[in-house]
Amino acid sequence: MMLEVRDLDASYGRAQILAGVSLDVAAGEVVALLGRNGAGKSTTLKAILGLVPPARGRVVFDGVAVAGLAPYRIARLGLGYVPEERRIFTDLTVRENLEVARRASRQGFAPWTPSRLFKLFPNLETLIDRPGGRMSGGEQQMLAVARTLMGNPKMLLLDEPSEGLAPLVVEQMEAAIAALKREGLAVLLCEQNLHFARRLADRAVILEKGQVRYSGTMAALTADATARKTYLEL
């Protein structure tokens, strides 16, 4: 198992956001984390990476118990994170944004270089010396994913990569993530866009009020109108 999360609790201040979340992601698998706003999807990703310190529970990434470690240590083990708001370094150029995240390559994965990334996101090549702040939302989202790949991760945590993007760009993003999946990367994907999630994910986990309410294959969820209605609709 690439990622194993057991009974994870996390809070912001006094508000408990996660209450006993458990989920698994196998090597090379794409798992969609679904649910309404405030269900705890983003917090789950942040708690896995240690950005929100988990109050309780176990997180095992590629055989290492990581709950309680500093985020940079977890990241160095090969867990890449692309946040919802992209968080590009706007004063840095595309080249520098990539350089900041560069880490040694890993056995079993072809190392990422800027030139290899430009094959995945052709737009970025022409923008190499442009400051991140002067790119469109779609270009920034591509850079956010590319930047994380420079760390040569074994697994990606993607927080709503389709949010706020034009449908055409969402299609390009889908193609890129599908290519990463073919390379063998595991992905935990938070999504609101069901069309997008459905085309990429092998399995789906649905959160509600910080707890896992549904877990199954994407095909089963697509077929299960009751589950969709209960957990994803009002």
Binding site: E84, N193, L232
Partner: peptide, 14 residues
Amino acid sequence: DEPTAGMAPVERLA
């Protein structure tokens, strides 16, 4: 301005 950004599909429609 993007009134339903960041919302779940059905919340958007509602």
